[in-house]
């Protein structure tokens, strides 16, 4: 899978055998020992990077010129967080990979983002649904990180939580307007929530060994989500389908295309600097 050097980061955490890369179809010889923390940070970084890439696709296509600017701002915030997190992940790994090596020279099977962020943008309602749920997850996540024992993560969390709080506010504003706007916008917004909803399960899957166990974010997440959806006159979908796998490198078909676009130029010029 990756060309990881067999080496743990500055804070070696023993890796339980077989906890990583439990991917069907992979030969059992493939898993390399990587630290739990590296995988965790990479997951956050990839969430932010892929979200930024999707939001950037909106540039010049927004429903209002003002909204073009707003979406670009949010994309820039996500990109900024991704860069800090990728840099830190590279240091934890200790294999000399910087932010660009991690962003541009991994294949989709090595990405650790949740499936939610890689889903196509769809219409403005789908984009707002994705952003709303992502921010509702990132706000308590970054807040918890801001108070965690890892200084680097705490600093990144402290910066990113303010940005995410704004993303949450902005997305909520639109979810309410689209949900309680016209008949058409209500229909589209409800359809968007229905489409995206199953992917939320993956965000909050318990992981007690992680620096922040996603399960501990559920109370905050649920309260924001139910409040905003109810203000928006939207109903919570019922579904038992819970797609997942992003954190283990098993993605939807969409990610490979997204990465093809993101990486095409960089990969066409090996060793070049930009």
């Amino acid at each position: 899978m990756t060309a990881h050097v067999e080496q743990t980061g500055p804070e070696p955490v023993p890796t339980a055998p077989g906890t990583t890369s439990a991917v069907p179809g992979m030969t059992p010889a493939a898993p390399k020992p990587v630290t739990k923390r590296f995988e965790f940070v990479l997951g956050l970084a990839d969430d932010a990077l892929v979200a930024a890439q999707r939001l950037a696709e909106w540039c010049t296509r927004g429903p209002e010129m003002e909204e073009d600017i707003a979406l670009a701002n949010i994309a820039l915030d996500q990109l900024g967080a991704a860069r800090l997190l990728l840099t830190y992940a590279g240091e934890l790994e200790g294999a000399g990979r910087d932010e660009d090596a991690l962003a541009y020279r991994r294949d989709d099977r090595e990405f650790r983002n949740c499936l939610l962020v890689e889903l196509p943008n769809g219409d403005f309602a789908v984009t707002m649904a994705k952003l709303f749920f992502l921010a509702a997850y990132q706000v308590p996540l970054y807040t918890a990180l801001a108070g965690c024992g890892d200084e680097r993560l705490a600093a990144i969390g402290a910066k990113a939580r303010k940005e995410s709080a704004y993303h949450l506010e902005h997305a909520s504003l639109w979810v309410r307007r689209l949900g309680d706007g016209t008949d058409e916008s209500h229909r589209r917004m409800q359809a968007a929530v229905d489409e995206v909803w199953p992917y939320l399960h993956e965000l909050l899957t318990p992981d007690p060994a992680a620096p922040v166990d996603p399960a501990t974010l559920r109370a905050d997440f649920d309260s924001v989500v139910s409040r905003v959806l109810s203000e928006a006159t939207l109903t919570v979908p019922e579904t038992s389908w819970t797609p997942a796998g992003g954190r283990n490198g098993l993605h939807t078909e969409h990610l490979s295309y997204l990465l093809a676009e993101l990486q095409v130029l960089h990969r066409a010029h090996p060793g070049a600097s930009w």
Partner: peptide, 20 residues
């Protein structure tokens, strides 16, 4: 100045447009 449907949107737009 800017355009927005309501005050809350106007405030968001103002933040993004005039305080980048």
């Amino acid at each position: 100045s800017l355009h927005a449907a309501d005050a809350e949107l106007a405030l968001h737009n103002a933040r993004d447009l005039y305080t980048r």
